[in-house]
Design a binder for these strands. Structure first.
Lengths: 208, 208, 208, 208
DNA sequence: CATGAATGAGTATTCATTCAT
DNA sequence: GATGAATGAATACTCATTCAT
């Protein structure tokens, strides 16, 4: 019965991932001991090692899946231009993406911003983790690019605007949100979006 | 060996900090062993402990000084509005700030973005580190706010724009630059600034 | 490896205690390294720490159990007065108690006097150890007090004698035996008891 | 000027000894660091090493001088029989000796019982320390023996009593006093002496 | 498959002693 | 003689991983 076995396997893996996330939220990856994961998961030490090759294997899965979540969030808020839907203004997209991150955190009972930071730090030192996260980072960028292309098409951005560059900036706003939330704790999706609205009101010509 | 001068002491501390930075660049804080710091610094194990209370003391100094550097960079590129200088467009300020980060990295021989990420991760975990970094984070925000106030005054932003919100977004662009540079490696100050220019060309009204 | 039995656990703990005692006999507590205990016990470093929280935990168990042994010895040699048995003269009780200490040392292959001295020194320094040893010290005193009460009852001591005070002196004789044995090496239970006999022959009135 | 130099040397040594005693009172010998001694003495690290060969040298001097003090106390309270003075009863001698110990502690500002225990423990493990303390232990014993001889002579003890054995028991009472004081804290010279009085009232024949 | 005790290399930190000034 | 910074071997303890049951 390979089907059931496979399902069972996935379930157990998820159980371990969830336990690890709860541990990592309290501490970072390196201060999270396998003993803690074992205890939190309710499994035995040996059991964990039948579902994961080791600690770094768990970390990698977390790093990978973390960005996937964000990528999906953005994709869903940046409608395919061919769909005929109106391209929303960037502040609405940013607001939706950041709000989705918080909603998901609440839903999963996990502080995703905190986890995200840990995976970024891990990516900075472990090339294998970086390799794993890069495709997802590119998907996020691509989602914003698609959005930008649509907006250019619709005449919202200058004709000669480069959609990739715009995507870079929009992509860059997310880590900035997460980091300021962790460090200063005062940013919310609404306020952040409002700030972007204000910023977009910039005009080259001073009016006075 | 007579009493050491305060100057010499500061020099030795800097020597240890530099050695630690070189280690942390290869690995993260937690994988950086004191033995490695000792070896890299060329001092003895005991000696390091006469200049720092312990590993976390070194980490804290790094975390603190890292943001100070960035804060200074931004302050220098966002002129005091009362100075009579023209408020530069935001893309120029962002370009200058990010470029300064890279210049400083080259000058110090240290990959500051990588270090920054490590300190952020540490701040997420160690409240004491967060406490140390928060004031600097606030200084960075304040610098952008001063910039925004000047720009509003000059009529570049709408009269009713909130300078603090604008500062949030501009502050948020920096981590986004650092992270994308680490993860995808394709952002440069010029390109990032160009992306911001394009983004600022956004108009609420579609032109077609 | 299934769950270990409580019995096996106690056995392992005893094995570690025994190894530590052998080490402490050569050196004191503080010069006894965990590495030495590990080597002497034949276990691995990690294993020792699954049976004891740390070095001081081992020391405390030794300190506690050491006095228990002596307390038991004295209790057994000072019959309950209600038992109807004759109260033995104090010199016999002292002889039996000291002899029991030596017998037990031979039986366990451990120089108990030497260990006792180490635990006393530790008690002098570590309030927690003192707290652990005090109840046993009180039990020893109480055993002598019971003895004294019986002897007063039997008319061997003056009616107005205070059993607690007598217990203090008798309790005090034991450390004196142990210490002189260690320092000068010439006291034996028999000789010590004989000395007490001579001392008890003291009369207030000179006979010449 | 070797005379002055020698005096100066002795003074400095005493200063270091006193500082060490204050440290040892808080902790044991092994937990007393040279850094602490240096700080407490007000000298420099290098200076301490010009007056003592090292830590164990200091310990040895303390171990040696500690017993000397006690020996002197006892000798002064057990008058030479040839002096014609009356031999005091043993309880008076014990009371005087223990009281002298406490008086001296107060005078020196050092908890001598605590220090004594440390030196005994050290003697138990370091043969060199034992070698140093043994002569003093023998002097103490000899003092009691002289006392016992006088008392036998005076007819206070049976003619066939062995003065050496009596000395053993009387010598043994002192550590017992010190240890109970440390562990239970309820013995005083007066009470201890009263206990000895009661004990000496023992009669072979039950009177009922 | 499950268990959890065993492993032992690895870690941060201390401290008696030295010696250049 | 005095100083105090430098030394580096030694120490208690941890933890990812394994494997006998």
């Amino acid at each position: 019965m390979p089907k059931i076995s496979e399902e069972h396997r996935a379930e157990k893996r998820q159980q371990i991932i969830a336990a690890t996330l709860r541990c990592v939220e309290r501490d970072c990856f390196h201060k999270t001991t396998m003993a803690a994961v074992v205890k939190e998961s309710g499994l035995s030490a040996g059991s964990v090692y039948t579902y994961f090759r080791g600690k770094s294997d768990i970390i990698r899965v977390i790093a990978e899946s973390g960005l996937t979540t964000i990528a999906e969030a953005i994709t869903s808020f940046t409608p395919d231009p061919s769909s005929g839907e109106d391209t929303p203004p960037p502040e609405r997209a940013i607001e939706a993406a950041t709000q989705h991150l918080l909603d998901l955190s609440a839903e999963l009972g996990v502080d995703l911003p905190r986890i995200a930071l840990q995976t970024w730090a891990e990516a900075a030192r472990d090339p294998e983790v970086r390799e794993l996260m890069a495709p997802e980072a590119r998907r996020i960028r691509a989602a914003w690019r698609t959005y930008a292309e649509g907006a250019i098409e619709a005449g919202r951005f200058p004709r000669d605007a480069d959609p990739e560059r715009i995507a870079m900036v929009l992509t860059g706003l997310l880590p900035g949100f997460i980091l300021q939330r962790l460090m200063l704790g005062d940013v919310t999706p609404k306020v952040y979006a409002a700030g972007l609205t204000d910023l977009l009101g910039y005009s080259q010509r001073a009016t006075q």
